[in-house]
Design a protein around this nucleic acid. Structure first.
Length: 198
DNA sequence: GTATCGATTAGC
DNA sequence: CTAATCGATACA
């Protein structure tokens, strides 16, 4: 599913307008057999949506300040989800800029915390049915602009990081990751290269 | 009850 | 590299 959602349009319609973007990076998290998954130790109030029906959202709050969006992918009772790590902004770019305080389009929805911020998502949206809106995935065919899909280890976790369940569109400017130098973020070249190698 | 850490980010 | 900042988790 992490591969399958790449190039698909993710939309959030609200009174403030429509914001949307093409998914360009996603990570799979599996339940009971994935130590990195929030569902590894069984159901809790926080991860309940992961155990719910597929096609719903799992939105969690972390580091005391960020929200992250997952798409639940397996039948009720079997926890599994895909973390949306980056979008190519399509609709509502003005609103995204306002929410992020950033001008550059490629930075708006790079990283899972920024994806949720751009889309205006919080725990309120946890459990929403993605087939009914206002948060939904477009039926339009994937727009991958001819880019190849590759996999890598997952980012930002301690356990089971080697599992190749991060998928992204090669070379897409909106993809996150340690190999990308952010303008103004000096001196991370050597360390970043080492991390990519590992 | 307290201590620690996190599917992150921005800034130095 | 670290601060920010708070809910979840582990453990006494």
């Amino acid at each position: 599913m992490a591969r399958a959602v790449l190039g698909r349009l993710l939309v959030h319609d609200t009174p403030r307008g429509r914001v949307s973007g093409l998914i360009v990076e996603a990570e799979a998290y599996r339940g009971s057999r994935d130590p990195a998954s929030h569902a590894f130790r069984g159901p809790t109030p926080r991860n309940a949506a992961m155990f719910g029906p597929p096609g719903h959202a799992y939105v969690y709050f972390t580091y005391g300040m960020h929200h992250c969006l997952n798409l639940v992918t397996e039948p009720r009772g079997r926890a599994s989800a895909v973390l949306v790590r980056a979008l190519e902004p399509v609709d509502g770019i003005r609103l995204m800029r306002r929410r992020r305080g950033v001008r550059e389009e490629a930075w708006l929805a790079r990283g899972p915390g920024n994806v949720a911020r751009c889309l205006g998502l919080t725990r309120v949206h946890d459990g929403l049915d993605l087939t009914r809106g206002p948060l939904w995935l477009s039926d339009q065919p994937a727009r991958r602009e001819g880019r190849r899909i590759v996999r890598s280890g997952r980012i930002g976790i301690r356990l089971a990081r080697e599992r190749p369940w991060r998928c992204f569109l090669v070379g897409h400017p909106c993809v996150s990751g340690p190999k990308l130098a952010r303008p103004g973020a000096g001196g991370s070249r050597g360390r970043a290269a080492a991390r990519v190698r590992g």
